[in-house]
Every structure is written in C-alpha cells, then in structure tokens.
Design a protein around this nucleic acid. Structure first.
Lengths: 96, 96
DNA sequence: GTAATATATGAATATCTGTTCATATATTCA
DNA sequence: TGAATATATGAACAGATATTCATATATTAC
C-alpha cells in the first residue's frame, strides 16, 4: 500500500473528525435527518456553543452541510461516506 | 440511529486509532504484510520506541496482532475491518 | 427603533496525546 | 558467563483538543 504523506494526513484528519464520542453521537443524530443547532445541543446534553464549535470543524471538513432558515441553521450529513464509515466502524466494535 | 453512550465511546476509540498520520502510514505498511518493529520504524522514519508505543495502543484495541519470533516481534493487521475502513476513508479523501 | 432568539466566535483553561529519553526485559551469540 | 540486539515501558514535556464563558452577529417580533 503506497501512500503519500499528504494523503496520510488527510486520512488522519478524516478519522479525527470521528474520534470523539460527542461528535459520534452528533453524527448519529444527523443520520435521522437534518437538525438545528439547538436541537442537537439538547439531544447531546451540550451547550449550543460547544455544538456550534464542533459543527464548525465538521463543516470545514465537508462532513456536514448547513442550511440556514430564518434564525435557525439546520445541519445534515454532507454525503454517504460518513454514514458508511460509521456503520462499518460499528460492525467492528460489535464483533470485537 | 440509536446509539448507547458506551458504543459511541467505543466507536470514537476505534476512529481515534486511525486519527494520526503516523499510525495511518504504519497501518498502510502492514497492509503489505507483517513487519517487525524496527522495519516499521525505519519505514516511518520514527524511533523504535515511538513505534512500539503506537503498536501498544493498536494491539490493545485489537487492530494489530503480534507474533514473536526470536528477539523480533512481527506485527500484522488483526482483521480486515481495518483495511476496509482505510480504503473507504481514502475514497472520501480522494473525491473530497 | 428595542427586545428576544439562534447561532457563531475568540480567548482561556483543563485534559488528552505523541514523542523523546532513559531504562528494563528478553533473546541470541560468542 | 557477558556483550549485543530487539522490543517494551515509564516519566516528562510539548503540542493539540474540547469545553466554558463572554460577547458578537443575524433574524424575527413587538
């Protein structure tokens, strides 16, 4: 398996985005469909601010998308790679 | 998507194992077959100690296996979940 | 216009993580 | 036996990360 240093870094960044339990639960919530920041925060038991900070990172990595409507911002998963990684990882965890 | 807190943590731990460029390159080396600690260290441009520390974590998470032969220890990927996660992630990075 | 609401952002802080260095253990060779 | 080699491990330090708090921006309601 040949791998440039740049791709190794990109890949590590992708997995880093999934390397925190709060973000994992956040993503699992988004799997049911788009949700506003405050709804996510409530579902996670976190402050709106903390969630907003996390979403910033996920957005920047193109894992989630933002849709603004009025004064709310609805977030959703950007593509299906995320959920596929998610379920594949879950597979490993459950058979571990 | 329902997800217990425990599973969220386990999942995050799994992805954490892949969240570092050195470990990504380490795993990519192991995709070509088992390798000793010193060969891995040389291939990565890291000290044996640093690699050994990383392998400890990966071993503990059952992502790699150790086989001792003489005074060398040969490491290999534990199952194919790892390489599947790896290639799926690479997919995302390349089409990003 | 002002007040209230939803989200974003910067700074500060506490915790976690990866590497280095020194040292320990285990194995082979002479 | 002792020297050399391969790996492992603990402590310490530097850098990264997640959350909190205060504050800013944007939108709606009055």
């Amino acid at each position: 398996m040949k791998l440039t240093e740049l791709k190794a870094i990109k890949l590590a960044e992708l997995f880093s985005a999934l390397s925190d339990a709060s973000r994992i639960r956040l993503i699992s919530l988004l799997m049911d469909g788009e949700k506003s920041v405050s709804v996510l925060a409530q579902g996670l038991g976190m402050t709106d601010s903390a969630v907003s900070h996390q979403l910033r990172g996920l957005r920047h990595m193109r894992l989630v998308r933002a849709r603004k409507s009025g004064r709310q911002v609805f977030y959703s998963l950007d593509d299906d790679h995320v959920s596929r990684l998610f379920t594949l990882g879950l597979d490993h965890v459950q058979h571990g």
